[in-house]
Simulated scan of single mutants.
Amino acid sequence: MVEEVVKSEEQNVNRVRVVRSDGEEDEQQEEGEIAGGDGDTLSSSSSSRPGTAVVQHPLEHSWTFWFDNPSAKSKQAAWGSSMRPVYTFSTVEEFWSLYNNIHRPSKLASGADLYCFKNKIDPKWEDPVCANGGKWTMNFPKSKSDTSWLYTLLAMIGEQFDHGDDICGAVVNVRAKQEKISLWTKNAANESAQTSIGKQWKEFLDNNEYIGFIFHEDAKKFDKAAKNKYLV
């Protein structure tokens, strides 16, 4: 369960956290950015203290954080054109080092989108892996998705889903009145796999509300009028 993943992975936080010497967050840092980030994969020798080796615990898959900055979006630009990869990680320690230096959803500007997808999968409908997929979505009141976002990430990278191979990634959308977390999958037509993923996701987040699954094909055709194909 996610509680076990949180407990086991939080033991690594103090060893891998990157903190400024004054203990404060860099207010000049762009929303979603990581201090010192240049878009490359983190080095496996990353450590919270110079010269101190940290034992790395590899994940089954490498994952990439992507960010879509609201200030870079424009109505004339094609969807996704302002989206860019931030960092790729492949170990537990790299994840925590990144997570502790990325703004939580509650701290992101309205209109921002933060993604975490398996490496080499672009978080776009056009990506060949995503093309025949869909997404489960949960809605949250403004500034209330931080914990659920973390638990979603831990469940994904910790391979907690029975049909984890079908998962492409997750995105949190920050809007003026609410926040949404969506879990993208690659084979929307496989109803049994999708319902299993949706039910487990609700269990991990202790969510008792109904959630719906929309095919990407329907979302492209009908935009906001697309209807849920599955409910759990």
Rank of each mutant, 00 (worst) to 15 (best):
E179G: 09
K118F: 08
D113E: 13
K199Q: 11
D165Q: 12
K73V: 11
V129M: 12
Q194T: 02
E31F: 08
T41N: 07
G134V: 00
G39D: 09
W66L: 06
P58K: 08
K199D: 08
K186C: 12
A131S: 15
D127F: 10
N100C: 13
S90K: 11
V92W: 04
E24A: 14
N69E: 09
K144R: 14
D166E: 11
T185L: 04
K107T: 09
S46F: 05
E9F: 12
Y151W: 08
N139D: 10
Y87F: 10
E3Q: 08
K144F: 05
P105V: 04
E24M: 14
S106P: 04
W136M: 02
G36H: 01
A170T: 07
I197S: 06
R20D: 13
D223E: 15
E31R: 08
S74V: 11
Y210F: 11
E3I: 05
E159K: 14
G134I: 00
I102E: 11
K177A: 14
K75A: 12
S90D: 07
M1G: 13
I121W: 01
N190K: 12
V19L: 12
G51D: 01
C168I: 02
K7G: 08
D162R: 15
D146E: 05
G23D: 01
F215D: 06
K177M: 11
C168F: 09
E27D: 11
N190G: 01
E27L: 15
T88H: 07
R49P: 02
L59A: 07
D113C: 12
Q29A: 13
A176C: 06
K124D: 13
H103I: 02
F65T: 00
G198E: 01
P141D: 07
I102A: 08
G36N: 06
H103V: 01
K202V: 04
L114V: 07
I181T: 03
E209K: 15
S71E: 15
T185Y: 03
D127R: 12
S21F: 10
F117R: 04
Y230A: 05
H61P: 03
K177N: 15
E4I: 13
E27K: 14
L150N: 01
T88E: 14
M156L: 15
L231P: 02
Y87W: 08
G133H: 04
D40E: 10
T91G: 02
V16W: 01
K118N: 09
Q76D: 14
E9K: 03
E33I: 08
R20C: 10
A189C: 06
G169R: 10
V129N: 11
S48Y: 03
S97F: 10
E31A: 13
N207E: 12
N228Q: 13
V18E: 00
Q29G: 07
S47Q: 00
R20W: 08
D162M: 14
V86P: 00
P70H: 07
F222L: 15
E25C: 09
D40H: 09
I214E: 12
D146S: 03
G36P: 02
D38M: 07
K202W: 03
D22W: 04
